[in-house]
Design a protein around this nucleic acid. Structure first.
Length: 585
RNA sequence: GCGCCCGUAGCUCAGCUGGAUAGAGCGAAGGACUUCUAAUCCUUAGGUCGGGGGUUCGAAUCCCUCCGGGCGCGCCA
């Protein structure tokens, strides 16, 4: 796991109020301890119940044993020393021994100013931390357009990249093109049939065997080649094969890139499997493993979970991945002497680490779960690195509880493009990100089409639009003025402070999302923030609370500052999720 | 058989490297529009956190075990 990365992040937080307090409390407690205690277990976090103050620390509980008799002395010192900090209003020590910290209103006003100065960058770690992360995702075979099932891992990978780079990492987004296997020969042959069809030959569906690609999407390519080259490729020979392989892969990759762009996804680098093989990188990797003594000649058992009718035991060269945590050893060569996919994947990951990344993350669909241990074992063996693999579980696409127009034409599928054109990239991204990525998800299009609280992306976008509408109103009233942050002391109401506190908590959620590789935390945070805003908007009305008071400029400025901070937070968060915002709905 | 994931309110899900009285939305019942867009908001009802053990000041969270569900296990990629 990425423990290295997690430590990095927590050490990064020296400007963080929580971390400062934590260090102070630890220092005080250490002075009274006769024994060691686990510093790492001590946390300073906002308590779930706001009557317990603004921050709570569990240090006394963690260090209870180490403190022994001196516990009450430590408590006295904490109560004495911490309030010396000008921001702290009071310290309570209650319950089983939580240190509850209450801040003065001036502290929150100060924090608000900080948010305003960072604008849409609020939540970002501004200075680079020097770590290079490679994140590889999508990487589907270039044998057809992306289908809707690819959406989740695509969005997950892209969003993780955005969040990690917001946290100061140097992130490279990579796509590995599997353009070497047998499937590409089948692809070339399929395109060739479409080409012949364009030239007027009678092609019937049965000529597309099960291994081939009979979907309509190759027809335009066949037509295109016929138009450019006429009958030049009529004969199926080696030269034709090479040409059709390359042309087909290029064509489909172009389509895949376009579809991904629709989803707001762009890659930094595309790596070709065929190129690795041509440059003998796979050979080098296998030779290296051989030299290390990890390879041997042996037999593999008949695979389980299949009928295995066509299985034949065969002596072959095996990689002893079981020494590195895999549950069986793996083959590197097929019976025809070419490399297995696994062999080139080893070379590929070896290559990534050699390019100098401190961490590599692969984002895969659930259908590759069985491959995790194998590849982790291999990268451990060849590069002595722990590859990190994030799994996006299956998504069931539904329309009002029923399967979403699945398999409407024989041999085809619902493409990613048609879904995005149907519901839009914003909804698609936001909803797919709203759930923990390693649990399966029933995605209902019916909900996404609604404009209501059920549709989360709408709800958050609506909050942002409301904020913009208040700002427009301000400009109408005071056309020649801007609201300044000089009057924040006019913010006095409890509900205003609760929302400042929520805004202030945003960077912590960003770090957590990055550390755990869990963008859904941000989605939930933004939903909660939007909810708090809508509450302030409406609940305030009962108390005749208005953001804009036409005859009180200072008060209005203060409230507009609060709205502005909420707006920056929403903007920052939504940008990390790759979702857009509108100033008017 | 083995590996990974999941089991929290009627439904869909949050729950922070273990923390205080387990939280949202939907659905159900009731209420709020002379407004900065009611595309919203407020009440109320609803839970032995799948069962059982263990670890400790403390467990929805960690460990073991059982039950139930999903995905995957090949010389495919």
């Amino acid at each position: 796991m990425g423990n290295l990365i997690m430590t990095d992040l927590s050490q990064k937080a020296d400007d963080n109020t929580y971390e400062k307090l934590r260090q102070n409390i630890i220092k005080i407690i250490e002075g009274f301890c006769t024994d060691v205690f686990n510093h790492h277990a001590i946390t300073v976090t906002p308590p779930s119940n706001n009557t317990h103050g603004d921050l709570a620390c569990n240090a006394l509980l963690i260090a209870a044993k180490a403190l022994g008799q001196k516990r009450s002395e430590a408590i006295e010192t904490i109560k004495l020393k911490l309030p010396a900090c000008e921001d702290i209003l009071k310290i309570d020590i209650i319950g089983p021994g939580f240190i509850n910290i209450f801040f003065k209103p001036t502290y929150w006003q100060k924090q608000l100013k900080k948010v305003l100065s960072m604008k849409e960058n609020f939540g970002h770690t501004l200075e680079k931390n020097g770590s290079k992360i490679n994140i590889e995702f999508v990487s589907t075979n270039p044998t057809g357009p992306l289908h809707v099932g690819h959406g989740r891992s695509a969005v997950l990978g892209d969003t993780l990249a955005r969040i990690l780079s917001a946290c100061g990492y140097d992130v490279t987004k990579e796509y590995y093109i599997n353009d070497a296997g047998n499937q590409v020969n089948h692809l070339a042959a399929s395109t060739h049939l479409r080409y012949l069809e364009t030239l007027g030959e009678k092609i019937n569906a049965s000529q597309f065997t099960a291994d081939m690609y009979g979907g309509d999407y190759l027809i335009p390519l066949g037509q295109h080649i016929a138009k450019i080259d006429g009958k030049k490729w009529h004969k199926w020979d080696q030269e034709t094969l090479v040409y059709f392989r390359k042309t087909s892969v290029d064509y489909l990759m172009e389509g895949i890139k376009n579809d991904l762009n629709l989803l707001n996804i762009e890659f930094d680098i595309f790596t070709s499997e065929q190129k690795l093989i041509d440059e003998e990188r796979v050979k080098q990797a296998v030779d290296y493993l051989q030299k290390q003594g990890y390879l041997y000649r042996g037999f593999l058992d008949k695979p389980l979970g299949h009928d295995g009718e066509d299985y034949e035991a065969r002596e072959q060269l095996l990689f002893k991945t079981t020494d590195f945590g895999d549950d069986k050893d793996r083959a590197l060569f097929k019976s025809d002497g070419t490399y297995t996919y696994f062999a080139s994947d080893i070379a590929y990951h070896y290559d990534k680490y050699k390019r100098g990344f401190d961490a590599c993350i692969d984002v895969w669909g659930a259908d590759h779960i069985g491959y995790v241990q194998r590849l982790k074992a291999a990268t451990k063996a060849i590069a002595n690195k722990d590859l990190e693999i994030v799994i996006a579980q299956m998504v069931n696409f539904l329309e009002d509880g029923k399967p979403y127009k699945m398999s409407k034409r024989a041999g085809t599928f619902v493409t990613l493009r048609e879904v995005i054109e149907d519901i839009g990239a914003d909804s698609f991204r936001f909803m797919l990100l709203s759930r923990q990525h390693d649990t399966k998800y029933d995605f209902d299009f019916h909900i996404v089409r609604e404009q209501s609280k059920d549709n989360w992306v709408f709800y958050v976008q609506y909050a942002y639009a409301r904020i913009c509408s208040v700002k427009r109103r301000f400009q109408e009233l005071w056309p020649d003025k801007n609201f300044t942050n000089e009057y924040l002391e006019y913010l006095t109401w409890d509900n205003e402070f609760s929302i400042i506190k929520l805004v202030n908590d945003f960077p912590r959620h960003v770090l957590l999302a990055a550390q755990h590789r869990e963008p859904h935390r941000l989605v939930h945070y933004l939903y909660d923030l939007a909810c708090a805003f809508h509450t302030l908007w409406s609940e305030g009305r009962a108390k005749e609370y208005r953001f804009i008071e036409p005859d009180q400029f200072e008060l209005t400025c203060a409230r507009l500052c609060l709205l502005e901070a909420i707006g920056f937070t929403i903007k920052s968060g939504m940008t990390m999720l790759g979702v857009s915002l509108k100033e008017q709905m």
